[in-house]
């Protein structure tokens, strides 16, 4: 028990003295996860609307496939991205392996199914009457889409929050394609994994507490957005 207590004390010391290494690791984690979710949302929201508002053959199958990929293991995405961006792979010339950029690319792929699938579900939940009303008032399809997205914002934001949670908490992908390089690609989760294996529990706990704290702040912000009229 003493070790856990000491761990907590040390954890709070590291946090409140703004330990430079801990802060830069936390900053990078947040930067990568947020970038991934923002980029992912910019791609996924219009794409999900496109899928939802158009009827085409195989739509149900597509949606099922998307939902299946909710549970794609982070290490599988890691493997895919590694093979693509390794120097012996097709995108090796970009020289991106073991950089934060490639971690963002991987996380965008990772959160894409969640953003797509849950946005489609969210849009399906919107009352048909709203679409009809918008159309009858002369809205074009783009404007109709915005109306429906606005109507579905609770569920869409829930999707974004979930995607953020998946991005910031994953470790397999970050470890494989980031390489856990100190001061460059080391994020909270890979640092926790490394420090725990080194038996350095205090630092691990501090990093874990920061991770939860970040999640809390993001959730509060998102809740406020949801509650806006």
């Amino acid at each position: 028990m003493a070790e856990i207590w000491n761990g907590l004390v040390e954890a709070f010391r590291l946090i409140f003295t703004f330990d430079p290494e801990v802060m830069s690791i936390a900053g990078l984690s947040l930067e990568i996860a947020l970038s991934s979710v923002v980029i992912g949302s910019i791609i996924a929201l219009p794409l999900a609307s496109l899928i939802h508002f158009n009827n085409f053959r195989g739509k149900h199958i597509l949606v099922s496939v998307i939902q299946t990929f909710y549970s794609i293991p982070t290490v599988t995405v890691g493997l895919l991205v590694f093979v693509l961006f390794s120097h012996s792979g097709p995108l090796g010339g970009l020289d991106l392996l073991f950089t934060p950029t490639v971690m963002v690319i991987g996380q965008v792929i990772l959160v894409m199914p969640i953003l797509l699938g849950m946005t489609i579900s969210a849009l399906s939940g919107v009352d048909r009457n709203i679409i009809d009303t918008a159309r009858s008032m002369g809205a074009n399809s783009w404007q109709t889409m915005l109306v429906v997205l606005k109507e579905a914002r609770f569920a869409v934001i829930a999707a974004v929050v979930l995607a953020f949670g998946r991005a910031i908490s994953e470790v397999g992908l970050a470890m494989m394609v980031g390489g856990n390089i100190r001061g460059f690609t080391r994020v909270l989760t890979t640092a926790i994994s490394l420090e725990t294996s080194k038996g350095d529990w205090e630092l691990s706990m501090a990093l874990g507490i920061i991770l939860i704290f970040i999640a809390l702040v993001i959730n509060i912000i998102m809740n406020r957005i949801q509650q806006r009229r």
Partner: peptide, 26 residues
Amino acid sequence: ILGILLVVVLVVGLLPLVAGCSSDTV
């Protein structure tokens, strides 16, 4: 929403600077 997201991203970008640990590696 986009506005707030933008602010969040900017804050995150500046966070390391504020904390005085803008590692030049990034």
